[in-house]
Design a protein around this nucleic acid. Sequence first.
DNA 1: GGTCTATCTGTACAAGGTGCCCAGAAACTT
DNA 2: AAGTTTCTGGGCACCTTGTACAGATAGACC
Lengths: 171, 171
Amino acid sequence: MGIDRLDGKLLELLADEPRIGVLEASRRLGVARGTVQARLERLQSQGVIRGFGPDVDPAAIGYPVTAFATLEIKQGQGPDVRAHLGSVPEVLELHTTTGHGDMLCRLVARSNADLQRVIDRVVGFAGIVRASTAIVMENPVPLRIVPLVRQAAGSADAPDVPGPPSRHGTP
Amino acid sequence: MGIDRLDGKLLELLADEPRIGVLEASRRLGVARGTVQARLERLQSQGVIRGFGPDVDPAAIGYPVTAFATLEIKQGQGPDVRAHLGSVPEVLELHTTTGHGDMLCRLVARSNADLQRVIDRVVGFAGIVRASTAIVMENPVPLRIVPLVRQAAGSADAPDVPGPPSRHGTP
DNA sequence: GGTCTATCTGTACAAGGTGCCCAGAAACTT
DNA sequence: AAGTTTCTGGGCACCTTGTACAGATAGACC
């Protein structure tokens, strides 16, 4: 388990230019195409890369308002609340947590006024005792993974890039 | 602005099977290849599709613990705090918000013990007055966009799919 | 030191996809 | 009714992918 430096560079490269193919990636990394192909397959089968889904901006499809809601729920209502929230399209993500609340969810809405409607729909459910909402104003650090990948690849089992560009079948 | 039904279906298709190409997508959607190509370009230039970055699972690279931290910061320290948090790889995302706290960030760590180290690093900064952390236990609804896309495409300006499979150059 | 195993390299080939172009038809707007 | 936008279907040159193989290399083991 874990990723080495080549894996890290490959992930960085894909994060920077997701549309490049295996061949182009191998050229950039200075390794053989087969190597990149094998690494990619391994990363996907290990679950490191979950997929290459399109990164859709909610703001661009009419939902410019984002908010986080902390929910407190009635004992034993967990499963019901989850199902309820799962059925609301504006709930982009839901976590159960320790701490003051019991759940934390990310919401989007068409406007501040519309956010009221979304919140009403979210909390308008028997199992939910209380909710407190924080509206997002700015997003100084958008969801990112590269710095973490770099840290993960640079430490631990990172036996360095496979082969320091040595040449093989050379006379 | 906005997306129509074909855009919606295209986004759904890409979310389901991100590795399919333009040609295959056009076959699935029953439209011409050029149409899919044009739609994709438009969606990207409009910012609806930000990219196709690899979806990396932090847990799979050694960071199985996720937490959300609400931060309260000293007046006027905003920019400094942002820069500080931006330099911490374990900070995956940062928002400034209304409400009780001033900022909300998503953290990951190698373990619960390691989370303490991360939090110390995050809050060990002059501008931060107080922090409260919620550790994520479960993630019943992982970050998703399809339901929202479906809603956005199904309403408003959705003049229906371009052409009800009519045939053209047919005798 | 010698051997084994896992991995990488370089190469080849067939199959198929991509980017780009075009003229004509269809649908929506004015 | 005319004009504009968009979709269709076709073609072409070029490139990438998937797959396979033998030989080279590095690290682990005996």
